[in-house]
Structures are given as C-alpha cells and as structure tokens.
C-alpha cells in the first residue's frame, strides 16, 4: 500500500491490510467493511471519521477482535507489532487485549459494569495481566485515577460508576484502559456523550497520552471538530470504504474527496461569514444493504460522472489519498479554494 512508502521515522505499530467484514444473513451476505487498509504509527493519533453506517466502529471492533457474532466473516490481515491478530488463538488474543491494545467507549455509564466500584474494575484489569496483590493493584488504580485528573482519587476508587459525573467516568475509563500501559488505545467516540466543556478536558487528556504514556491513539469519531483538535492523521470513511486519508492539515485544509469537502462544509462555521444556507450533502448515508454499485458516494455527489460507475481505487496526491476519480488528476480545483479559504481564516 502506498501509505507505507511514505518515508517516516516513526515505526509502524498497527498495519491493517484489506480488512473486510461481512455478515451472513437471510438476505445474503451484508458487507460492512470493504478492503480497508491503514496503519497506526508509534505515538500518533489517527482519527477515523465517518457518519453512521460508515464502518468506523466496526473497524475498531475488528482490530480488537471483539466481533463475536458467529455469522461474521472477517478477512485480511491486522498486523500488530509483527503478529497477525486474525491468526492468534483466542487465548493469545485475550492476553493482548487490555495489555497491548486497550479500548474506551462512547458512554462510560453503560461501558462499566454497574455493580462494581471504579477501583475494583481497574484492579480487575491490572490483575488479569500482571501478577499483583490486591493491595498493590488498588494502589496503582488510585495512582492512575490521579494521573487522569480525577480529584480525590482514593475516594473516587471506592465509588460506583453511577455515582460519578460523565467526565469523571470517562477519566476512570481511560485510567482503566491505560492501566497496563498499552501501546495502542482505541477510543470509540470517547466524547460524544459528554458536554462540550468536559469534552475539551477529555480531548486534552487524550492528547497528553502519547507524551506521558507513549501510547498511540486510534480515535473513532463523527465530529470533524474533534478530529481537527487532536489528530495527526485522518482517515475519512464512507459506507464501508476509505474515502480519504492523509495528514490532518491536508485532509481538512484541502480535501480531495467530495465527501470530505461536503462534510466539512456541512458544519456551520463558528467564525467568518455565515452562509445564507449551509452547503449540505443531499440524501443520507446508505445502509449496508442498500449500498450503490461503483463509488458508494456517487448518488449524493455533485461531481458525479460516468467513471463513478466503477469503484475508484485510492489515488495519491502528495501525502493525501482519496478514492475518487477526480483525485486521479491531481488536486481538484475546490481543494485549492478550500486551502486558500482556510489559510485565510487561520491568519
């Protein structure tokens, strides 16, 4: 894959190649992910952004091998530190989960078992992977809560999830995920359930992880604002495929896929002139059963052309790649316009 040829000094931590996830159903095989390939490098934050049905959450679950449905068919390879996760035995995979790759979820209220204290749940993870006494595990749990900015951590450890506020719960969840010093943290919509001022706190915490813990983060989100705030690289997904990916300033600054462009324009601006009407993308994202042939975005795309009847591969422009026939011939015009606009705003 071209992305791997980019000269970079950072080592590759996770290398996903041609990941396909589909489900057998009464109506035939439903494809959720189609040939998704990407890499996560050491100490970087990769954002995977998309709307409902884009397959972003499925990607994260596939990496963790948390798709338990017996009807799921998963192909491709997920190489983590040189080992293909899809080939590991359940036991080997279990050993990796939580220790090497950890995950946090959207709603920490439902993602934590309601009947155990925060401290108990962190201890449980520590003791699943490390040979620690209960006492030592509790001490470490309190320490972790403190590092995550939980006030009075020793007391917080004795509280049940429902007794904490949303922000503190998410901090506790992150403390638990980081308890065994994982190299990769997968954060699935970690701030979606939170208020905006609390979201800012959690995003700040996530960004600190790579320096304080040396962890890479794979951030799953639907919010372009969150992407812009914390990520190094961005991967935009649409309807089970990669629409566009590249370094954040490039993808957000000069998008080369019409979907990325449309998504960015759909967000009402906080600065500058208000548009009379928001430039919106017509229609809504297709369901996995109703994906159009060829480029899945073409029914909603204002630049649709004949070529779109066949699925475009990822075309590369500089550091950026987009699966759009327009990107075949260099940067589309609008990308330049957007670039001028955004640099103008930033100045």
């Amino acid at each position: 894959m071209p992305a791997d040829q980019i000269p970079n000094t950072a080592e590759t931590l996770l290398d996903v190649q041609d990941l396909c996830v589909s489900f057998r159903s009464e109506r035939g095989i439903i494809r959720i992910l189609e040939n998704v390939s990407f890499t996560v490098r050491a100490r970087e934050i990769l954002s995977i952004v998309g709307e409902s049905g884009s397959g972003k959450s499925m990607t994260s679950l596939a990496v963790m091998r948390l798709i338990t449905d017996p009807n799921a068919i998963i192909t491709g390879s997920i190489t983590y530190k040189g080992r293909d996760l899809l080939k590991l035995s359940p036991r080997e995979m279990r050993d990796l989960r939580g220790r090497e790759i950890a995950m946090i979820f959207q709603d920490p209220m439902t993602a934590m078992t309601p009947v155990y204290t925060i401290g108990w749940q962190i201890e449980e993870q520590l003791r699943a992977h490390q040979d620690l006494s209960r006492h030592a595990a509790r001490a470490r749990a309190v320490e972790l809560l403190g590092e995550m900015g939980v006030p009075a951590p020793a007391k917080a450890a004795t509280r049940y999830p429902h007794q904490l506020s949303g922000g503190l719960r998410q901090r506790a969840m992150i403390a638990m995920a980081l308890s065994c010093n994982p190299s990769l943290l997968i954060a699935d919509e970690p701030t979606t359930a939170l208020d905006v001022t609390v979201q800012a706190q959690i995003l700040e915490l996530l960004q600190r992880l790579r320096t304080d813990f040396g962890s890479s983060v794979m951030l799953i989100t639907h919010d372009m604002g969150v992407v812009a705030t914390v990520s190094d690289r961005v991967m935009v997904m649409y309807s089970g495929i990669i629409a566009e990916r590249g370094p954040k300033p490039d993808v957000l600054g000069q998008p080369t896929h019409p979907y990325t462009l449309g998504l960015l324009h759909s967000i009402p601006p906080m600065h500058g002139e208000k548009p009379h009407r928001l430039p919106s993308i017509p229609g809504s994202p297709p369901s996995p059963m109703g994906r159009p042939p060829g480029c899945p975005f073409q029914p909603r795309c204002e630049f649709r052309m004949d070529a779109c009847a066949t699925r475009p591969p990822l075309f590369r422009n500089g550091m950026q790649e987009a699966s759009c026939w327009l990107a075949d011939k260099g940067l589309p015009d609008w990308a330049h316009e957007r670039a001028i606009r955004t640099t103008g705003e930033a100045a």
């Binding site: 989960r97 939580g98 979820f105 439902t110 993602a111 078992t113 993870q125 699943a128 969840m173 638990m176």
Partner: peptide, 21 residues
C-alpha cells in the same frame, strides 16, 4: 450490554466475564 464488551476489551476470560459480569 456495553460493559460485557468492555470486559472483553480488558482481556478477561470468558468464564470470568460470565460469572463476575
């Protein structure tokens, strides 16, 4: 429930997930 997924993500054994969670 989400917390079962979390328990799996923590790397717990299936029997522990069943009994404890």
């Amino acid at each position: 429930e989400d917390f079962i997924r979390t328990a799996r993500a923590k790397g717990l054994s299936e029997s522990r997930i069943m009994l404890r969670h």
